[in-house]
Design a protein around this nucleic acid. Structure first.
Lengths: 123, 123
DNA sequence: CATTAATATTCGTTTATCCGCATGAAAGGA
DNA sequence: TCCTTTCATGCGGATAAACGAATATTAATG
């Protein structure tokens, strides 16, 4: 179990550990794309794109196919998008909570709770 | 959209970016737990545990509640476990592919493909 | 064979992350 | 008040990651 978590962090998690790589995964969601198109779309240096793609490729998260002088990248398992989308749902909830907190601060400028509301089980 | 991905990497992804933190999330899956128990279970220094918990806490991924001198940590959104589990499925598939590759290497010790098998579409 | 286009890789620098020791802070009990 | 327990935090030091510029590689084309 702990070993599997370590494997996750060698093989899968590096894909999510960087916003640019995650953006690449999203770009590949709609189908295979050549490096050039990814580079144009992301607006960052080609060497950066290539290195990010290397990270994904070495872990089998994307597959490659040569077409002439260009290389087409494909998502190897669409479920990784599914996982990211769940994380986005978690994010949305997080943001809602933050907004609530901000509103509570406005309503109650000094919520110090001097009566120890959090101390539930005084045995 | 690109902004949302950046938010993901500020608020959610750091939780998954480290095997120890992911292990903590799994430990909290079965219910709220105090820091001491997490520390014992993981067998790493208490300061490390506390630091990892701080990363999760500052992002609202876990909630805290004081009970006497100890602090109880709770998973704020169980869906993050769901996302991790999907990543584990992706991992399992990845491992299967690797095993297949390893077997092919055994069968064909020198798979140099001098006939350019990857060049499919010679228009 | 020279050239061009597309992609990969090397390199040095900067930045971020992790770790554990030591210490600080908060609550409870004597 | 002093002490103990429990947790948080301030440090360096070490390690890893990301970045852009320059260069190498590969394939197609003339």
């Amino acid at each position: 179990m702990e070993t599997e978590l370590n494997l996750l962090h060698q093989l899968i998690c590096p894909a999510l550990a960087n916003p640019k790589r995650m953006q690449i995964l999203y770009l590949l969601q709609d189908g295979p794309q050549p490096v050039g198109w990814i580079t144009e779309t992301m607006g960052i240096p080609q060497s950066s794109v290539s290195r990010h793609l290397a990270v994904l490729r070495e872990r089998g998260i994307v597959n490659t196919e040569k077409q002439g002088t260009s290389v087409i990248y494909t998502l190897s398992d669409p479920r990784i998008i599914e996982a990211i989308n769940i994380l986005r749902e978690v994010l949305r909830r997080q943001l809602d909570v933050h907004i609530e907190l901000a509103q509570n601060i406005k309503v109650q400028p000094n919520p110090k709770l001097s009566t120890k509301k959090t101390n539930k089980n005084k045995s």
